[in-house]
Amino acid sequence: MGEIAVLLQQKAGLGPDKAQEVEQVVVQHIMSRVPSEFQGMLGSVLGSGASTADGQPAAAESGGLGGLLSAATSMFGNKG
């Protein structure tokens, strides 16, 4: 069970099965909105059950949120 499912159980009072189902829907929706080059990094941030927009398991790339932010910064240029 992923972190999102645990939060759904604690904060929304959902049972374990429903929390996992909602987690899958949320993660798939988020992944469908993210460019494919970021899906692996986002998958590692969201948890092991994450999949790409086409339903494939997200690649387990290292870096987590820091890697995602670093890639986005380099893609859009560092304005700082």
Rank of each mutant, 00 (worst) to 15 (best):
K18L: 15
F76L: 10
V22C: 04
G55F: 04
N78F: 15
I4K: 08
E3N: 10
Q10L: 12
S32L: 04
L68C: 01
L8R: 04
V45L: 01
Q28G: 04
A60F: 07
Q9S: 00
S48T: 11
P57R: 08
Q24V: 11
I4W: 02
Q10D: 10
G47T: 01
N78D: 15
G55C: 02
V6D: 15
F38E: 03
G47A: 06
G80W: 15
A19K: 00
S32K: 06
V25R: 15
S44D: 09
S48M: 09
S48H: 14
N78A: 13
E21M: 10
Q9I: 02
S51N: 05
P57K: 08
G47W: 05
G15S: 07
A53G: 04
F76E: 09
V45S: 08
E23C: 10
E37S: 11
H29S: 12
Q56C: 05
G67L: 07
V34A: 02
E21F: 09
V6Y: 14
V27I: 12
F38A: 02
R33H: 10
K18F: 09
Q20G: 15
Q56A: 08
S48V: 10
L46Q: 07
L8C: 05
P57I: 08
L42F: 09
S70D: 15
V26K: 03
P57Y: 09
E37V: 10
S44N: 12
I30T: 07
D54C: 01
G43P: 01
G15A: 08
M41F: 14
A50E: 02
M1D: 15
T52A: 05
V26C: 00
P16Q: 06
G67H: 03
G47Q: 01
G49M: 09
A60N: 09
M75H: 13
V27M: 12
D17I: 05
G2N: 15
L65A: 08
Q28D: 13
R33F: 06
S36V: 14
L42V: 10
E21C: 06
Q28M: 09
L46P: 02
G55R: 02
A58W: 09
A71H: 03
A5Q: 03
R33E: 11
E37A: 08
